[in-house]
Design a protein around this nucleic acid. Sequence first.
DNA 1: CAGCAATGTTACAATAATGTGACAATGGCC
DNA 2: GGCCATTGTCACATTATTGTAACATTGCTG
Lengths: 228, 228
Amino acid sequence: MTRILVVEDEPAIRDMIGFALKQAGFQYDEAGDAEQALAAVASRPPDLVLLDWMLPGMSGADLVRRLRSEEITAGLPIIMLTARVGESDRVHGLELGADDYVTKPFSPRELIARINAVLRRSVVVTGEQPIEFDGLWLDPVGHRVRADGETLTLAPTEFRLLHFFMSHPDRVYSRGQLLDRVWGRGIFVEERTVDVHIRRLRKALAGRAYDRFIQTVRGTGYRFSTGH
Amino acid sequence: MTRILVVEDEPAIRDMIGFALKQAGFQYDEAGDAEQALAAVASRPPDLVLLDWMLPGMSGADLVRRLRSEEITAGLPIIMLTARVGESDRVHGLELGADDYVTKPFSPRELIARINAVLRRSVVVTGEQPIEFDGLWLDPVGHRVRADGETLTLAPTEFRLLHFFMSHPDRVYSRGQLLDRVWGRGIFVEERTVDVHIRRLRKALAGRAYDRFIQTVRGTGYRFSTGH
DNA sequence: CAGCAATGTTACAATAATGTGACAATGGCC
DNA sequence: GGCCATTGTCACATTATTGTAACATTGCTG
């Protein structure tokens, strides 16, 4: 499932975009300014960023520069949203490293078309590094998990769940939060579904006793931690 | 600073391109025909070549072939400029070894975007050295594949697919990404087409059990890897 | 320890993703 | 022009995944 981060301060436009994205089958997160955007990117790297040129505080251009300068986010596909029409601005945005831009006003159809085009172009995932905890190793790029060198087979949701946990260790997440961040916003499923997937993930990790990393916090949620 | 060689016989188009390139911060050289282009490449190798399909004398296609056949220029990123719209020409250009093509008329923005995309991609491009994994051997220049010394016959698409995979092992690629990078951008085919070609490639490799190198990652795409 | 809420566990049916074979269109080649 | 290889697409088969419900177990509170 493709996840898109929408950085836009106008709630009306944000909603419109959100609706279009949902229609098109994308998951998405929202950010009202550059700071929120950076936080969102850090906590859960999206597959693509839709970025308004005009933002309160740090401008869209600054944000692009910032994202491009960081190793991890350097390859993140970015589409700029801009009301400006001057060629110099366009070139400017592209020079900074945006992969494409869409001029307001735009139709949802156009937006989706651009997104698909850029996504197809983009060179795989955000240059994510493998993560390891005590011999439990996960490679986001290769989509692989190893326990003490032995490859494990995980179903897609199990993989995403483990990936999320390993990216955010030592933190408790409620079922609702997990649904939001692993399943995606706007996905409507029972909260107990999380329990079942936790169970499945634990089962998959149980062979080498790595299931102990997935811990239940009664009354709150679940946590990934190498400690007890 | 990135240097681009523009091979185009029409002075008007050349100027337009030159202006766009300058605006975008590229340096560039110009050539009016294939001979000038070869001379320019020899004297001052560019980072990328923008090449008109229709040239007086040696055609653009011939020039691509020529550049690809020379050791030093074999990996040079090439973008074709073409007025033709026929699907067969596109395939042709990409088969010959162009990295992308832009159909006239094009906007400066589009051109720059394509250039940036190709440049970003080409950084990772592996040379024209033969690649081998556990007895599966592929020669990009000779267009040859051997399994334990025995030559395999692959259809062109199968070969490109395998070549791409072997150049990027242990990474998962979505169907869309494979279409972009093996078929070429702007080629519009069903994503399921990838499945069929994967199947054909596996079949071709199955004799020596090398089909296990092509792995399905459910919900995501495919991966080439010698491991399981 | 009873009673209750939260979580673990299992089974299952619906759905989604992928594998597979066939076919028609296309273009190269003689 | 006729033959052949290649290719994209479809229809259908097969398999994996997923959400849910139902029941079991655990742990807490008084």
